[in-house]
Amino acid sequence: MEQIILSFITSIAPAVVFNTSKRNLIWAGFSGVVGWVIYIFLFEKTGDTILSVFAGALGIGIYSETMARVLKTPATVYTLPGIFPIVPGVPAYYTIEYIVKRNFINAAGTGLETIGSACAIAFGVMLASAVFRLYNRIKIKSAYDKY
C-alpha cells in the first residue's frame, strides 16, 4: 500500500514538472501505479529485471492508450510520467561507478542491464501502441467495408 502511494507520487510529480493540465494529473499518477505494481509483482516472482520492466512498460502503454481514447487526449500525457518509477537508475549509477573505479568487466554487465531495461521500457510502450494502432486500422477498414 505504501509503495502504491509512493509510485503514485513518483509519477504525478513529474507530470506537474512537465506542465500536464490539472484534469489529467490524477490519471497520469495512476499510470505510474499500474507500471510499478506489475513490475514489482513480477520482480518478486521471477527476479528478472528486464522482463519485469518490460511487463510494467507494456501495462503503462495499454493503460495510456485506453485512457487516451476515453479522455480524448494524446497517450504521451500518461506514458511519460508513468515510466518514472521503473527507470533503470540503480544499474545506471553502478555502471558509472565501476567505470570510475576501472572495473570494466562489472561495468559491462550493469551497462548492458541499463540499456536492456531502457529498451524494454521503450519497446513495451511501443508494443501497446502498435497493437492499438492495428485495432484502429481494422476498425476503419471494416467501417469502409460496410459501404
Binding site: 513529474p14 506514458t79 540503480v90 521503450a122 511501443m126
Partner: peptide, 21 residues
C-alpha cells in the same frame, strides 16, 4: 539517482521509439 531522475530524457526516448513505429 533520486536527484537526477527528473532530468533523464524519457520524452526523447519514448518519442524516438514511437517515431520509428
Amino acid at each position: 539517482i533520486g536527484a537526477i531522475v527528473i532530468h533523464l530524457p524519457g520524452m526523447a526516448m519514448t518519442n524516438g521509439i514511437k517515431d520509428a513505429l
